[in-house]
């Protein structure tokens, strides 16, 4: 079977810094990682390949350096990586991103065989919209299965797939038909370490690189900033509240003294809450 896994290279969020003067995000020198949510899809893809045979292709749209993430995915055992990179994609919102990715997936399908499953991450840790997976599904006419906590069964002959899906109030058991777009829940599996052989292969592997023209995009007005209906009008720092926090003094005061003062302060600001607490304590 053919499985495609969409991954996004993201800044390692723990290490992002904001410039203290200009308030802009300092991306230079920030290490990048594969979006952690994408690894649950990748591991699921590898398990399906191990069981049913076939190939796992990892793909991303991004700057040339996104090759690193694809290569990293190969060390876990993916069979090939494809990068879609072109300046026309700069500034894409989710609609423009799913547009570009749908062309990438179509072209990859023509090259290696149409995908039975396309995995996306549940969301990313930077943009964090969870909109690209559904966008791809819609554009390619794939059945959309988001928040999947487990794939219980699959039958390649009658093209059925049985999944459990995490809803807001419980778990849905769904049966659908391939091809599908799946996003996996975090914690549904753990990415494997990859073998020595995978590491060696990944180091030497050639990552396929395509641009807008090679995947067949002729109308670049639907790409990048131009093709994005959302426009970021302003970026700003949150305003501090008008009154600053009232600070409890600590100079030469014992922890119990501080705690007493803090409790006094809380109770005087929230007398209703104090009364309720006392009432509960008194067992009423």
């Amino acid at each position: 079977m053919q499985i495609f896994v969409c991954i996004k290279q993201v800044p390692d969020s723990g290490q992002i810094r904001v410039h203290p003067v200009t308030n802009t995000i300092m991306r230079q020198g920030v290490p990048t990682i594969i979006n952690p949510y994408d690894l649950f899809g990748l591991e699921q893809a590898l398990r399906l390949r191990d069981r049913f045979g076939g190939e796992v292709t990892v793909m991303t749209m991004g700057p040339p350096m996104a090759v690193d993430s694809l290569r990293k995915a190969l060390t876990f055992g993916a069979d090939r990586g494809v990068l879609l990179t072109d300046r026309v994609f700069a500034g894409s919102d989710t609609l423009a991103t799913s547009y570009a990715l749908s062309y990438l997936i179509r072209k990859a399908g023509e090259t290696w065989g149409a995908p039975d499953i396309v995995f996306c991450g549940k969301q990313t840790i930077d943009g964090d919209t969870a909109q690209v997976g559904p966008g791809i599904a819609r554009r390619l006419g794939l059945s959309q299965l988001t928040y999947v906590s487990g794939i219980d069964d699959m039958d390649l002959t009658d093209r059925q797939i049985l999944v459990r899906r995490r809803g807001d109030h419980g778990v849905q058991v769904l049966r659908s038909r391939l091809p599908v777009m799946v996003t996996m829940m975090e914690g549904s599996n753990e990415i494997r370490r990859g073998t020595q052989a995978d590491a060696l292969r990944a180091a030497r592997a050639e990552i396929v690189q395509w641009n807008a023209a090679t995947v067949g995009i002729s109308d670049t007005s639907l790409c990048g900033l131009r093709g994005s209906p959302t426009v970021v009008k302003k970026v700003f720092a949150p305003t501090a509240r008008d009154e600053k926090a009232e600070m409890i003094s600590t100079e030469g005061i014992s922890p119990s003294g501080m705690a007493e003062a803090l409790v006094d302060q809380i109770f005087s600001r929230q007398p209703g809450l104090r009364d309720d607490l006392f009432r509960q304590a008194a067992g009423h």
Binding site: P11, I16, V18, I25, V231, K234, V235, F236, A237, P238
Partner: peptide
């Protein structure tokens, strides 16, 4: 909120 931990951004959908 925008990523980075300390900023907000305002987004518009102008011509759709």
């Amino acid at each position: 909120p925008t990523f980075g931990g300390s900023l907000l951004c305002t987004i518009h959908t102008l011509n759709y």
